[in-house]
């Protein structure tokens, strides 16, 4: 119980720390917009499908698979909420949260699982930073996944042009890694498709595909 309380305090603290700097693309987009978002690594596979009913609220179905965490696999349904958006002349920042519930299965047990997410980002045409915390509650346990990104665009892309980014991604997941996972990657946007390719310093390939429609 004591360990649980300490972890809860850390969770709250990190939530607030991440309000200023900020992770990935947006879990809530334009009204009527849908997104497929797949992240693939040897030890981690996350697939998400969401639909935004308003520019502030989206429903999401997703599946997480963490091979390193006792072969954990879940299927969840939940909502994403754009808590706050800051629009400046040449930049924007967003704060999102999400809650999900579903079914999990791992090497030793199965049952109900819950997840919460907090994500914040700031981006201009040439700089990009984002951070997120995901908490997974299942089997009387709680695990956290932290992610932080910083990206630089080598040029300003105009409408209809390929947009490119050089991104450094830092990840930490309870039980999955004993060390911080550092992944340099390339990120591209073209029309409604985003894709990322990289490799962690340990040699693990990282791929992301995101399609807006």
């Amino acid at each position: 119980m004591g360990v649980y309380n300490i972890r809860m305090k850390w969770y709250v603290l990190i939530h607030f720390l991440l309000l200023s700097p900020s992770i990935m693309a947006h879990p809530v987009i334009y009204k009527g917009g849908s997104v497929y978002w797949g992240t693939f690594m040897p030890q981690m596979n996350i697939q998400r499908l969401s639909h935004s009913f308003t520019p502030k609220l989206a429903i999401e179905a997703h599946s997480n698979r963490f091979q390193g965490v006792n072969d954990y696999q879940d299927y969840q349904l939940g909502i994403n909420w754009l808590v706050k958006k800051w629009l400046n002349q040449n930049s924007q920042a967003n704060l999102y949260t999400g809650v999900y519930a579903g079914y999990f299965d791992d090497a030793t047990s199965n049952g109900l699982t819950y997840q919460t997410m907090l994500m914040a980002d700031w981006e201009s045409r040439t700089l990009y930073t984002a951070g997120s915390v995901d908490a997974y509650f299942y089997d009387d346990d709680m695990k956290f996944r932290y992610s932080y990104r910083f990206g630089v665009a080598p040029y300003k892309a105009a409408m209809g042009e390929l947009q490119s980014w050089l991104v450094l991604k830092l990840d930490y997941f309870d039980d999955l890694n004993t060390d911080l996972m550092i992944t340099p990657m390339l990120r591209f946007f073209y029309n409604n498709v985003l894709w990322e390719m990289g490799s962690s310093l340990d040699g693990d390939i990282f791929l992301t595909l995101m399609v807006h429609y």
């Binding site: 917009g33 201009s124 029309n191």
Partner: peptide
Amino acid sequence: VPGMVCPLCLVGIQKQ
């Protein structure tokens, strides 16, 4: 429209 920073912003506007 302030705050538009990437070509992806346009996808949503075109849809609306």
